[in-house]
Design a protein around this nucleic acid. Structure first.
Lengths: 358, 358
DNA sequence: AAAAACTCCGTGTACGTACACGAAAATACA
DNA sequence: TGTATTTTCGTGTACGTACACGGAGTTTTT
């Protein structure tokens, strides 16, 4: 029943069956040339027939070649601390597979600054990693990088956001449209049909906005399923995060003119804590507030009850999975899932504690 | 920065530093006796000082001793298919660590039949496994088994349910009280303060009922936090699953006498699909329905909207973690977390798809 | 005082793979 | 035909640990 390591076929066995030495088999396995076509063919046949699986323990031990993975992600400080969580997941994965010689070099860049992305990616490429974890926040630049990695034969795993070129081995992230529908479901379930809902997008000049758009799309899609005119009850508000504008000012204009109008507010990203802070400061009657990501800042507002629900993108799991995917590809040489959606977790005050490390 | 396998200290190095041969160090490491106290002490000091970490790859390769883990769990067929999911998680973990010679033997028993538990556990013990995964459904019998394993020095991991003896290395499961609070939160959020709620416990003559009690406790606790008299709005209904009674009959008595009384129903385990089936059959005005576990049976009712929310116990993750915990303990010889709570996942129609394999 | 038993420890080989080195065979070139 | 070159392949060692075997030295037994 168990086909694990007990008495599996070895290189030696193949060599014996083919009437050659182990070295020759090794050359065939590693395409290290200088083997006559006839023997190569014979060996490959035997490998096929006996379903030879290399012993990765012995392999890793003998090779002792380090697998260097590069992670190119925004730094998790300042405005969007989101990215420190994938990093934690990366560490976690590393702990489990460090014996195989896997290491991860981290290259950070600034969310808002495509130049810093390019600089970091240049630096990364000079270290010629065997695999890359890429957060394609800067869409255009990321696409070029992807091409380049493709030319060098470096496998790339996309994390968190997807860009639709085929030249990556996997995408790990969330189904954004669907997550918007989950948010809408929660909103509608608590609010029923009798109030307007404000959708707030904190936008950025630069950087990938796909997430935000798809989340809003999913949110609206859910509402449309109930009534055609319900769409008109969803009011959109875009707030630019660039310094030139005052977020609080805009919120004030929208919310204070008719304080009771909105029964619910849906914030399409992690900046939901900003809205929560505003609501608290102004002492407004509390609308239902739903947003994204269990950041430390938002956590406090959840405990106090200002934020009702958060959708988690499972950032830690994303980091974990991205390393593991490259490990499976590089070390175990196994097929990996092309699109790996992480679950759409609903966080609320009551289950928050058990998500602290997710 | 990276302390992974590159140029780590080896047995040879320790031997050289201690002025002995590698064999002696090996004897000290494995307590295989016949080493003078003085040299043993010296070697241990060096090991300590240099923070020697054995190379588990080389270790596993050289030893080639299989690690046999036994999983003693109810079979996942018939009434409660729950247990097939942990099994899937066990397989998944196995896939990742089979190269280390880890194998899992599965021993099944009948939830309701303590005798079958004892039979299975006897059989298991005759195969003297190096580690045990135990679902302590039969409380008393499990406690004795735990003692016995303790005597034999076999580490045990408890899965899903906890029994409060100290002689296991880890418990993996859910915080049941807290999960009840999550359910209550969802109920209260959708129902506000204006309706009675029915709490249905599907009970069994035998087997561990802790879960159910704690879930109800958490549910009530949440409601008490809002008003002291709210507790009186929570009506409890116990339905025995034994054949002698007719579940549907009891439901009929409770629900049909005053069809509009209950705005919500909370079922404290996976049998929520039974209630959903009943509601559909009778064509009752749909109350909010919340239960546990994403079983195939319940899934269909979620999609149709009869069941509003399910709390997932993440059974697959429980299985996965239990194997991994024993792997860390047995193979890596690392410290493992004593109590490993799995997250309290909220499943709804909209995020259901991404939980299919959790 | 020789034999036996026991304590302490070094040596050697195995685990399965990777890879360097160089020998033998095949081919090319003169 | 002899030499140079290339193709093809076998041998040996290394990776770090586990463990069996047995040698040298010491103590006990007869």
């Amino acid at each position: 029943m168990d086909n694990n390591s007990i008495s599996r076929i070895r290189i030696k066995d193949i060599a014996r069956l083919a009437g050659v030495s182990a070295g020759t088999v090794d050359r065939v396995l590693h395409k290290r040339g200088e083997v006559s076509d006839s023997t190569r063919k014979k060996i490959l046949e035997i490998i096929e027939k006996m379903d030879y699986q290399p012993d990765i323990l012995a392999s890793a031990l003998a090779a002792r070649k380090p697998f260097r993975i590069a992670a190119l992600i925004p730094h998790g400080t300042g405005e969007s601390p989101f990215w420190k969580y994938p990093l934690a997941g990366i560490e976690e994965a590393l702990n489990e597979i460090a014996h195989f010689g896997v290491s991860v070099d981290r290259y950070f860049f600034d969310y808002e600054d495509p130049d810093s992305f390019v600089r970091s990616s240049r630096k990364m490429l000079t270290h010629s990693p065997q695999g890359v974890i890429l957060a394609p926040v800067c869409t255009g630049e990321s696409a070029s990088l992807l091409e380049e990695c493709n030319d060098y034969g470096i496998p790339v795993v996309l994390i968190n956001a997807n860009i639709c070129t085929g030249s990556c081995i996997a995408f790990i992230g969330q189904d954004s449209v669907q997550s918007g529908m989950v948010a809408a479901r929660l909103m509608h379930y608590g609010l029923k049909d009798d109030a307007d809902v404000l959708i707030i997008n904190f936008t950025r000049e630069k950087g990938n906005q796909e997430h935000i758009l798809k989340r809003e799309e999913g949110f609206r899609k859910y509402y449309r399923n109930f009534s055609t005119e319900s769409d008109s009850r969803l009011i959109q508000l875009n707030i630019s995060e660039s310094a030139s504008q005052q977020p609080d000012k805009i919120l004030e204009d929208s919310l204070l003119s008719d304080p009771d109008r909105f029964g619910g507010i849906f914030v399409t990203n992690s900046r939901v804590f900003r809205v929560a802070a505003f609501l608290e400061k102004k002492g407004l009657e509390k609308p239902i507030l739903i947003g994204y990501d269990l950041l430390q800042e938002s956590k406090e507002f959840m405990i106090k009850g200002t934020i009702d629900f958060l959708i988690s993108q499972k950032p830690r799991e994303q980091g974990y999975k991205s390393v593991m995917t490259l490990y499976h590809h590089l070390v175990l040489r196994k097929q990996v899932g092309r699109t790996q959606y992480v679950p759409i977790d609903i966080i609320t005050k009551e289950n928050l504690e058990h998500y602290t490390f997710t």
